[in-house]
Simulated scan of single mutants.
Amino acid sequence: MTVRLRRAEDADLDAILDIHNDAILNSSAIWTDEPVDRRERELWLAQREAAGYPVVVAVVDEAVVGYASYGAWRAKSGYRFTVENSVYLAAGHRGRGIGAMLLAEIIRLAQEAGMQVMVADIESRNSASIKLHERFGFEHVGTVRQVGTKFGEWLDLAILELPLQARERV
């Protein structure tokens, strides 16, 4: 299996939409209940690009099978060097190392952009995602209990962080 990573393009939005909506409908990875439409993903991609936040896709046999990005962790200017990542894969392509490739690429891009810290906010029972992030050096820094709900149950949020640069005074 050959996997190629590249920046997302408008032509990738249908595949990104399918992957995103699958995560909404079938997992607790995205804490929203309703699928989104293509227009929402168009706006999302445009906003990411305008803010300088990359969206990277993984392509296998000319099909987009995953995507990753990072964006602002919090809106206030004091957090401007801290980003939160997202990595999503199509069903049938998980557990093959594609998520690791995507995560490595967005970490590299965040470092090149001068970001200081990358945060991963992960539903606490998502052990596959937590283990993936830990393999890249993310450390668990806290769990916030019952801050979300989906599928009729309360969800805990595990917070992991990865320093991207040497920690110095600004």
Rank of each mutant, 00 (worst) to 15 (best):
R4D: 13
D10R: 01
A11W: 04
A15I: 09
I19E: 03
I24Q: 04
S27F: 12
S28N: 14
D33H: 08
V36L: 12
R41T: 06
A46G: 06
Q47P: 01
A50Y: 10
A50P: 03
G52R: 02
Y53Q: 04
Y53T: 03
V55L: 15
V57M: 05
A58L: 09
R74M: 09
K76W: 13
G78F: 13
V83M: 08
E84Y: 09
A90M: 10
G92H: 07
G92A: 08
I98C: 03
L103Q: 05
A104D: 11
A104C: 12
A110D: 01
E112Q: 09
E112W: 13
E112L: 14
E112G: 07
G114M: 05
M115C: 06
D121N: 13
L132W: 08
E134D: 12
R135Q: 12
F136M: 06
G137T: 11
F138R: 03
E139P: 03
H140M: 11
V141M: 07
V141T: 07
V141K: 01
Q146K: 06
V147N: 00
K150L: 14
F151Y: 14
E153W: 15
E153R: 06
L157M: 15
A158Q: 03
L160D: 02
L160S: 03
A166R: 00
A166W: 08
R167I: 15
V170S: 02
